[in-house]
């Protein structure tokens, strides 16, 4: 069996959207951050699913959000779990709470890992990782 971890030129994993998440990634490719917003109760949610986890309504829109939020918590990877990240350690993976409520797993970039703090204000930016694929990351606001 071939495996990314033993191939010659390790590539970072590219998101493989599900039917539910495809609109999220289509928006990201255009450098827009969109999450689902319930047309019944008005709340936003993430990760994508076909019904609102707040009220179970199936009526929703993909709403563009502010891209602003704060670091709820974060970790710093020192161990290389995937060879494509060998040159990146130490790097920060954070849980960012958007102003609209949902929390997103992401990277914090543009700041030294030891300067990242919980509750730090951050804003979104987009990193183009392949043709037609961009990944939202966050940087201090």
């Amino acid at each position: 069996m071939s495996d990314a971890s033993i191939s010659d030129k390790p590539q970072k994993p590219i998101p493989r959207p599900s039917p539910e998440s495809a609109p999220y990634w289509e928006a990201a490719a255009q450098h827009k951050l969109r999450v689902q917003k319930c047309n019944a109760c008005g709340q936003h949610w993430f990760p994508p699913s076909q019904r609102c986890p707040h009220c179970t309504a199936a009526d929703f829109s993909w709403a563009e959000v502010s891209g602003r939020g704060k670091v709820f918590s974060f970790v710093v990877f020192h161990r290389v779990y995937h060879p494509a990240f060998e040159g990146e350690v130490p790097y920060v993976v954070a849980l960012v709470e958007l102003a609209e409520g949902p929390r997103l797993l992401t990277n914090i970039v543009g700041i030294a890992p030891d300067e990242v703090r919980c509750e730090m204000a951050v804003k979104v930016l987009f990193e183009d990782v392949a043709a037609g694929v961009a990944v939202p990351k966050f940087t201090p606001a």
Partner: peptide, 12 residues
């Protein structure tokens, strides 16, 4: 996971 993790180097 296929998304919302591996692309950020989040594993384990």
């Amino acid at each position: 996971p296929r998304e919302f993790g591996p692309e950020y180097g989040y594993f384990g």
